[in-house]
Amino acid sequence: MTVIIFLAIAALAVAIGFLGAFIWATKDGQYDDTYTPSVRMLFDSVEKKSEPKIEAEKGV
């Protein structure tokens, strides 16, 4: 039954991992703006068409 002790420690270790992730996210400022990401995620990724134009500008 000592396996229970091992299990409890392992479970806590996993939970501490998530706590670490939470602390990192907070310090990184992810909770400073909780609204804009919800808008941002709806945008499609950049269209490829625009690339030649930028290169043309660089050429000049």
């Binding site: 409890a8 479970a11 806590l12 939970a15 706590l19 939470f22 602390i23 907070t26 310090k27 400022g29 909770y31 400073d32």
Partner: peptide
């Protein structure tokens, strides 16, 4: 103001974590 709010969120997170695990134990 931002840092103040962040430290409070951190505290809630850490205490919440401890509370859940203590209850489980």
């Amino acid at each position: 103001k931002n840092t103040l709010q962040r430290s409070l969120i951190l505290k809630i997170g850490v205490v919440g974590f401890c509370m859940g695990n203590i209850m489980m134990m």
